[in-house]
């Protein structure tokens, strides 16, 4: 197991380096704006004095790299500074929103991942049958429609025509867990429809890809029934690509949900980011970007580790 621990630590180190590089990009992208932050925030109409006052308040007179390390040091301890618009601490503004996004993402993931993998297994088992074709056409059409369009369609049918679910997923603190699940059902369903196709098709492709392997033929020639050939002989060897696609889709569930949040007026981090960009609230934009980057890197790291752990050659060295 020593080898695997070392491998994981190495990947973790690489992930940290990547986050550092991203943090440099995020920070200095803002520096690249014409003029400076103070100018950009206050706009064309600001007087010289207000701009100067703002500069002093933000400490812009100090060199950029000093401010970068200041910012990075703060970010490492969870302190992303203060919002330029509301004056609220960025960490407080974000934490609640991020928790909402994580909740919605987990809700969608818990339903989408098992369904996609099951569908993938079944379409591989009954490949080229009507079931396979229908499943493929359905998932492909949901992935080809823009997610806001899907969202509105769902609202039309499940909230307006049949009033089963609320169209607006606003939250309040006194809701029970069940109410919460009910309230966020439509945004969850939209997300599930968007991510299922990728994962299902990758599971199907990864399994079918292995069906030509000699060990699959061997399993068949041992009299193993078809479902067992797929589940016991193909699937355990197909995890690596499946895990990678699952991780990418989980990352999407966290970082790519802006439109869905807007459609359902859901108070997630995506909406916060869009608002902050519109209001030029740079500390919030930077913090959101860094969180998104970290999410991506962590999930990919998890996928790498997952692929390693499912590979018997690495798990049981000679």
């Amino acid at each position: 197991m020593g080898d695997i621990t070392r491998l994981i630590l190495k990947r973790l180190g690489l992930g940290l380096v990547t986050i550092l590089v991203v943090s440099v990009l995020i920070f200095f992208a803002v520096e690249l704006l014409p003029g400076d932050i103070a100018q950009a925030v206050l706009g064309q109409g600001a007087t010289e004095e207000t701009v100067a006052a703002m500069r002093e308040q933000l400490g812009l007179d100090r060199p950029a790299f000093v401010r970068y390390f200041d910012w990075l040091g703060g970010a490492a301890t969870g302190d992303f500074g203060v919002s330029l618009v509301s004056g609220e601490r960025v960490s407080e503004a974000i934490s609640g929103r991020f928790a909402h996004t994580l909740f919605l993402a987990s809700y969608a993931a818990v339903i989408a991942v098992p369904i996609s993998i099951l569908l993938g297994v079944f379409t591989a088992l009954y490949r080229n049958t009507i079931f396979d074709r229908v499943a493929n056409v359905l998932t492909l059409s949901t992935i080809s429609s823009p997610e806001f369009f899907l969202g509105y369609i769902l609202i039309l049918f499940l909230a307006v025509r049949v009033t089963m679910f609320p169209a607006i997923a606003s939250l309040s603190s006194d809701m029970t867990f069940l109410e919460l699940l009910h309230r966020t059902f439509l945004p969850m369903l939209t997300l599930v429809l968007v991510v299922t196709a990728h994962m299902m098709r990758m599971t199907r492709a990864a399994i079918i890809n292995l069906l030509a392997s000699p060990y699959i033929e061997m399993a068949r020639l041992k009299g193993t029934p078809p479902w067992k050939v797929i589940v016991k002989h193909a699937l355990p060897n197909a995890w690596a690509p499946i895990i990678n696609v699952v991780a990418l889709n989980l990352a999407y569930l966290i970082t790519g949900v802006v439109l869905v949040e807007v459609v359902f007026v859901y108070p997630g981090i995506g909406q916060l980011l869009v608002d902050a960009v519109a209001k030029r609230d740079f500390p919030i934009v930077q913090a959101c970007c860094l969180i998104f980057a970290a999410t991506f890197i962590l999930l990919n790291l998890a996928a790498d580790v997952g692929s390693i752990l499912t590979n018997p050659r690495l798990r049981h060295p000679k």
């Binding site: 000699p214 060990y215 061997m218 068949r220 041992k222 355990p236 060897n237 018997p312």
Partner: peptide, 30 residues
């Protein structure tokens, strides 16, 4: 019949054993 009354030994044992399972589990399967 397969595995029970007629069995098969393939050309490349390295490719015909499933890499994810122990030899004896594959042996015991049939």
């Amino acid at each position: 019949l397969r595995g029970s009354r007629i069995a098969y030994v393939a050309q490349s044992a390295a490719a015909s054993f499933n890499p994810s399972h122990k030899l004896i589990d594959q042996h015991a399967e049939a």
